[in-house]
Design a protein around this nucleic acid. Sequence first.
DNA 1: ATCCCGAGGG
DNA 2: CCCTCTGGAT
Length: 218
Amino acid sequence: MTARPRSLAAKRTLAAEIETRLRREYPTAHCELDFRTPYELLVATILSAQCTDKRVNMVTPALFAKWPDARALARATPSALEKVIQSTGFFRAKAKSLLGMARVVVEEHGGEIPTTMEALVALPGVGRKTANVLLGNAFGRNEGIVVDTHVARLSARFGLTRATDAVKIEAELMPLFARDGWALLSHLLIWHGRRACTARAPKCEGCVLADICPSSSI
DNA sequence: ATCCCGAGGG
DNA sequence: CCCTCTGGAT
């Protein structure tokens, strides 16, 4: 347990220590979604909202066998698609997103998933979080830190950020970490947020960051 | 009951 | 800023 960092320098020092420790704690942290192409990762990521990656991985093999790329998916009927993805929840909204996404990809990008933040976010059902996952994990880009609820909560607890809006949190967070490796860093923060730094009843005992955390209960 | 690596819409 | 969309796991 420590005081909340005040200066930019103090925040950077804390951020670097957090990253070092998390890299050591989770040497094999990686994206748990199964995918072989950018198209597959985009579909899987859209399906992963409010759903575990395990469950997404249970439905995607059938989905990709039926609709192996955006051109095929664009021709799917909503009911057939809904049937396949039903167990991931929000299935009507997700089917609508997937179909709209596939159609825009075919009509405006020649059937290939676009590789820029601007074009990705313009796709139906694709927000900043999903776009960041694609950029980091499918295109090897390094354009930002993925800010989801876990990253938002964890960085707030460490006093690294004050904003509640994801875009502002990202802007506050990026200057604090080294410029390379944001994709891996995002995974580490999310991973730790899910496993230890949970929303309710965080597992501070045994947390590798407890002694440098301003919010730790121990 | 409560939570899940969100996005769109009012 | 609020609400809604949904099934499954715990």
